[in-house]
Design a protein around this nucleic acid. Structure first.
Lengths: 138, 138
DNA sequence: GCTTGACTTAGAGTTAACTATAAGGATTAA
DNA sequence: TTAATCCTTATAGTTAACTCTAAGTCAAGC
């Protein structure tokens, strides 16, 4: 079975060997095998596990909580409920983040339009004047 | 015109007075008026500006870059192009973040299903066994 | 007059997640 | 055999964005 060195894995995941050793130290990678001389041999399954970790990180989950999950994985079937609950909670978090991003996007798009109009007019005053026009013509 | 104290504004925006003073120090709020004794008087328009700042922050924009934008605002119409470009770039950033979140969501939802199945079966082995079944029955 | 909340400058502390260096050793490929 | 890459422990530095304390002042409301 093909294995990968720490720097190969780092390159693939856009991390550094420092970061991977740091994850290891923090207990995020308990399953990685070693040569007799201690060099890490990453299997595809280890890389897949790291991708899940990166996924959890991208939801804003702190490393210490990710470690809990890794520990639950080692503990076997008795922790299935916790792991299910955790992913359901993550799902809710990501849904909330999506909602937030949508609102952010609305503001940004509004600003894009605002500045497009101002740019076409050559001045930001166009937006202030618009209101005056309305009150005058009303 | 109604004005608000620093702690009223902080409460409204879910920040602290410390944070608002920090923003001020970093040049993010150049327009806030003061009493003769130096106390900040926030207008509705200042709160609106702070909401835009919070919006930019939520896109991951660092405070130093937000300061550039604030400076451009003070510089008037000559910076309209920069400001437009900035918001267009933010738009692209947020779109990319949405794509990322979608991918993240797919992984999370897959994991939810995985653990739901395992939980119903009482063991994670159900997923390993499934593959064996296929190869046996094939 | 006293409390509350505002202000200032200056600087220290916090947190998370890296990121790096030192010092020493082992292994592997050209 | 030499360079590159891996390992360790231990420790220190970095960065961003706060977060707080100290020490002293000021002003409004009860």
């Amino acid at each position: 079975m093909k294995t990968y060195s720490i720097s190969e894995v780092a390159k693939e995941l856009n991390l550094t060997p420092y970061t991977l050793r740091y994850y290891d130290k923090e207990g995020l990678m308990p399953l990685v095998e070693r040569t007799s001389s201690g060099i890490r041999l990453f299997k595809e399954s280890d890389i897949a596990a790291l991708k899940v970790i990166e996924c959890l990180k991208s939801t804003g989950m702190p490393i210490k909580e990710i470690k809990n999950f890794i520990d639950w994985c080692s503990d076997g079937d008795s922790t299935l409920q916790q792991r299910y609950d955790m992913f359901m909670e993550r799902k809710a978090t990501v849904e909330a983040q999506m909602e937030e991003l949508k609102k952010t996007m609305e503001v940004i798009e509004h600003k894009c339009l605002y500045y497009k109009t101002a740019l076409d007019a050559g001045t930001e005053d166009i937006h202030k004047k618009a209101k005056i026009e309305i009150s005058v013509t009303k």
